[in-house]
C-alpha cells in the first residue's frame, strides 16, 4: 500500500457536496504527515469536467460510466473497490452521510480494511491513523488507532472547514475501468424525489421554537405553537416528531432534514443527537430546555435549563405576550 490519501467525492445532481471539500482540506493537511499526496475517487457520469474544482488533489481517479450517473450503493460500491485496488491508499476518507455510510462499510468488508466511523477528527500518529468517533448520541467520544496498511475513516459532515479544500486546479486524471454488471444490477436507481413544498419555510425564519420527543404527544404541540406566535417565529422539530407525523417533513431540522441558521433557536425536549446538531449548530443564539442535565444539546447551546418544559413553556409564553 502507498501513502496517499484518497477522498471519495460525493455529488448530487452534478454538484459536489460541501463535505467533499471538507474532506479534501483535511486530506491536504494529513498528506504532509503520511508523506503522500491527495487523490480523489470520482465515480459518476460526465463528472470529469468538474475535476478542476478538485484542485486540492494531485490526482483524480475517474470511473465514468453512464450507468453510474446517479448514486447506487451497489455499483458505486464496486467502482470504489476498483479505485482502491488501483490507488492503494494509506487512508480513504469517506463522508459519514447517507451515501458515504453505504460506501465505507461495504468497502471495509469487500477489501477487508479497518473502518473507523462517525469521525470528528483524524490524525496521523507515527505509523498509526488515529480517529475520534462520536458515539452514544454524542455523549461519548472514542479515539481509535489503526496501524493497518490501509484504513477507511468515515467523517461526519460539517466538522472541517470546506474552504480549506475549495481550490480550483487541474489534477491529473486517471481513468479506472467501471466494474461489470452495472446495467443489470440488483439495485436499480429510478428517480430522485424532490422534497415537497411546505406551509412554512423554516429556513427563512429568524426565530425557531424546536420541539423534540420531550413534547410527549401531538396534543402538546399547541404549547410550542403559542410560544412561537408570541415570539413571531415558527415551530420546527427533531426527526421523531416528523416520523410520528405530528409535523410535516418540511419542519424537520438536521442531517436528513433542513439546515437552519436563525437568530434564535429554542430547543425544547431535544437531546441533541449529532444528526440534529448538524442542522442547527450555526444558529446565533441557542437556548435549550431539557430535564436531562447530561443531554448533549447543552454542549452546543448558549443557555440551558433543566426545567420541565411543561412548566417552563407556559410561564415563558405568558411573559412574552
Amino acid at each position: 500500500m502507498g501513502q496517499d490519501i484518497l477522498v471519495v467525492a460525493e455529488h448530487l445532481k452534478g454538484e459536489f457536496a460541501d463535505v467533499t471539500f471538507e474532506l479534501l482540506g483535511k486530506a491536504a493537511e494529513l498528506a504532509g504527515a503520511t508523506g503522500g499526496s491527495v487523490s480523489v475517487a470520482l465515480i459518476g457520469s460526465g463528472m470529469k469536467d468538474k475535476a478542476q474544482e478538485l484542485g486540492a488533489a494531485a490526482k483524480v481517479y475517474s470511473v465514468d460510466h453512464t450507468g453510474l450517473a446517479d448514486f447506487n450503493p451497489l455499483t458505486h460500491g464496486s467502482a470504489l473497490a476498483a479505485v482502491v485496488d488501483h490507488a492503494a491508499p494509506r487512508l480513504t476518507l469517506v463522508a459519514n452521510t447517507s451515501m458515504g455510510m453505504d460506501l465505507a462499510a461495504s468497502l471495509s468488508v469487500a477489501k477487508d480494511l479497518p473502518l473507523i466511523a462517525y469521525a470528528l477528527d483524524v490524525q496521523v500518529d507515527g505509523d498509526a491513523i488515529v480517529a475520534t468517533s462520536q458515539l452514544y448520541g454524542g455523549k461519548i467520544y472514542a479515539e481509535s488507532a489503526s496501524t493497518g496498511a490501509s484504513v477507511i475513516v468515515s467523517v461526519l459532515a460539517g466538522v472541517f472547514p470546506a474552504d480549506a479544500g475549495r481550490t480550483n486546479g487541474s489534477p491529473a486524471i486517471e481513468d479506472v475501468a467501471a466494474p461489470d454488471g452495472i446495467d443489470d444490477a440488483q439495485v436499480r436507481f429510478q428517480a430522485l424525489v424532490e422534497p415537497e413544498g411546505g406551509d412554512v419555510d423554516i429556513t427563512q425564519h429568524d426565530i425557531l421554537v424546536a420541539v423534540g420527543r420531550g413534547i410527549g404527544s401531538e396534543d402538546n404541540l399547541p404549547l410550542a405553537e403559542e410560544l412561537a406566535s408570541a415570539l413571531g417565529g415558527a415551530v420546527c422539530s427533531s426527526r421523531p416528531i416528523v416520523d410520528s407525523k405530528w409535523l410535516p417533513k418540511t419542519r424537520q431540522v438536521g442531517k436528513s432534514g433542513l439546515k437552519v441558521k436563525p437568530k434564535v433557536y429554542l430547543a425544547l425536549g431535544i437531546s441533541g443527537a449529532p444528526e440534529h446538531i448538524e442542522g442547527m449548530k450555526d444558529a446565533e443564539l441557542i437556548i435549550a430546555v431539557n430535564t436531562d442535565e447530561t443531554a448533549p444539546i447543552f454542549e452546543f447551546a448558549h443557555y440551558g435549563s433543566t426545567e420541565d418544559l411543561f412548566d417552563l413553556v407556559p410561564a415563558l409564553t405568558e411573559k412574552l405576550k
Binding site: 447517507s98 439495485v187 428517480a191 430522485l192 436528513s256
Partner: peptide, 11 residues
C-alpha cells in the same frame, strides 16, 4: 439524503 431529498430504487 439531506433536505428531504430522496432517491427511489427498485431492488
Amino acid at each position: 439524503y439531506s433536505g428531504g431529498m430522496m432517491a427511489r430504487y427498485e431492488v
